[in-house]
């Protein structure tokens, strides 16, 4: 045991926790009696009909196997594969997110560079930022009139703030020495912005982007529960209406896995732009 590295020991411990957790979960679910074991009285009182209950992990695993072996089937509006549902969600998140980034990063740059712009825009940011993105939904549905675009708008509005604030903060906090280096080398405003301020502020900006994508993924589930039609959020709600708790647990896990992958992608980006002073 002493020869194992820190990572190996951690991985082993994770595995033990997973197995113990699953075992406890499995054993804590009372097994439903099969129909032939029921007494005449039980059958008459309807105790034999399948009860909705929290599914044991073995059922969830079976469900996962079934769903993941054919993720892209499409059997009508209420029966689509998990891959299609997640695909819709990712498409909405990335569209809203890209629109937000396209606005927030240049605007954040401006706010960070100009104290006047910062002071002028700060009250608006402070009022708009704490608004729950879902509160915009009725207004978005009324004005935009399209549920798909409204969901994208909600993602846009929720992912804009961390990027805007972090970009402004990162740009404002660029060390004066580096700006002076640019000035003594007669770099123009645009070159200074791209070759000095952007790389200097990049770690802070990407941190904001990482927070934003996390929030966007949290919000899309709720937004899709409201607008319906497609997407992983709609899928969860639909399976709840079907009382298929196995599918609900499975889709909850899938939301977690996709969120982790989105975060990991931005974690990688963060490492590539980071620097040590």
């Amino acid at each position: 045991m002493g020869q194992l590295s820190l990572n190996q020991r951690a991985a082993l411990l994770s595995l033990v926790m997973l197995v113990v957790g699953l075992l406890v979960w499995e054993l804590s679910i009372p097994a439903q009696k099969a129909a032939e074991e029921l007494t005449e009285y039980e059958r008459l009182t309807g105790a034999g009909s399948a009860k909705a209950g929290v599914p044991p992990p073995s059922d969830v695993l079976a469900k996962a196997w079934e769903q993941l072996s054919n993720p892209f089937y499409d059997a009508g509006p209420n029966d689509k594969g998990i891959g299609i549902q997640i695909g819709y969600s990712i498409y909405r998140v990335l569209t809203g997110y890209a629109l937000a980034a396209a606005l927030a990063i240049p605007l954040g740059f401006l706010i960070g560079m100009s104290p006047v712009a910062y002071k002028a825009l700060n009250p608006f940011i402070q009022v708009l930022r704490p608004i729950s993105p879902l509160a915009w939904m009725p207004l978005a549905l009324f004005i935009i009139g399209d549920s798909e675009a409204s969901a994208i708008f909600v993602i846009f509005i929720c992912s804009i703030w961390p990027m805007l604030i972090n970009t402004a903060f990162g740009v404002a906090a660029v060390r004066q020495d580096w700006v002076n280096v640019a000035r003594t080398h007669e770099l123009g405003h645009l070159k200074t912005a791209f070759f000095v301020i952007l790389p200097a502020a990049a770690p802070t900006i990407v941190t904001g982007m990482r927070i934003s994508i996390g929030i966007a993924w949290l919000v899309i589930v709720a937004a899709e529960m409201l607008v319906g039609g497609t997407g992983i959020g709609y899928y969860v709600w639909n399976e709840w209406n079907n009382l298929d708790l196995t599918s609900v647990v499975f889709s909850i896990l899938m939301i977690g896995v996709v969120g982790m992958m989105l975060d990991a992608a931005f974690g990688y980006l963060q490492r590539t732009v980071s620097y040590v002073e």
Partner: peptide, 19 residues
């Protein structure tokens, strides 16, 4: 008036761009 490439500066804290 203003900084220029004709006047090079070596700063006390080196001021190298760390990235």
């Amino acid at each position: 008036s203003g900084p220029s490439l004709d006047r090079g500066v070596v700063f006390q804290n080196y001021s190298l761009l760390p990235w």
